[in-house]
Design a protein around this nucleic acid. Sequence first.
DNA 1: AAAAGATGCAACCGCTCCCCG
DNA 2: CCGGGGAGCGGTTGCATCTTT
Length: 319
Amino acid sequence: MKRPRGGRGGGEQPAVRKGPWAPEEDEVLMRHVQEHGPREWSSIRSKGLLPRTGKSCRLRWVNKLRPDLKTGCKFSAEEERVVIDLQAQFGNKWAKIATYLHGRTDNDVKNFWSTRQKRLARLLRAPMPRRRPGKHSSGASSSHAYELPAPKNPCLETIPFQEPITIGESSGSSKDPNTANHRAVAHFPGAYGLPPPPPTPLPIMHAGAERGSSSAAPATALLLPYGGDAGYPVPGGVDPLVFVDPAASPEPLEVVPPGPFFGLDDDYVHAGRATMHRDVCGVRFDDLPPEAFDFFELPNLPAWPPPFPPPPPSQPDQL
DNA sequence: AAAAGATGCAACCGCTCCCCG
DNA sequence: CCGGGGAGCGGTTGCATCTTT
């Protein structure tokens, strides 16, 4: 576990302990929950069981001690898809989204999304062709020389790209295009071999078709109409971190009217428009070598502002 | 091998909501 | 109806770990 932080909870309030939880504290908290259930958090401190605020206790329980948590395992492709989908509909309602993901907490979802957004921001800002010669740094991992700091620009959370990308069609670069093409293409079909949708019926909007019923696990499961953020789903948005097979979806996806993308130039725009899910299909965007990005092209964006209906007011909240 | 930078995640903070008297 | 307290939620921070140079 991490050692106590210096900056926070530094003892200005000796009565209340902050910082990382000790195993003994966890035990006490678990015992309390066993006896009283996951409530009466404030009484934990008032009874002198723990020098922690009720808030802190609740958070600890919800995020770490709950028995049904999937601790230490990354988001699966399906979970990723669900998060993306639901985020488009609900916005940053992480707690709500988390209810659709068994074993995941709102904090998990929040962190996952935050990480994803940062990754996306990096990718979109990274002029891929300028990679270092002779170096194979892994995709979006750290230390790109050309990388710009990911700004905390809320706009970056809204991804206006809606276009299926084309991978493996370009004649490519000088850098063993076969390898790059092969890598990219070879994994994409897996994206359509996604496992069945989650057992929970998702209120997923789908352009032209209804999705979300557990029986409908279409091959177009990655054709996700989302892209919004901060509670206002982008109409017809499609997350550029989701790869969409153009062959499987011959129709163009809705696009936000093209325009300056956060002030980024076309290089950036061309770069960050796809991702693959790990686990199921085996590859994520940032798993790809930089060479793979040489093959990402931006097809002519059809200028069609799609009137996308807002999500139905009645959200299936049940699980 | 060491240093620097990037990433992931646990935990805190402030605000809002809800319930109860 | 109003006020107070507790619970829940979303945003943010900062450290540990990992990756790259």
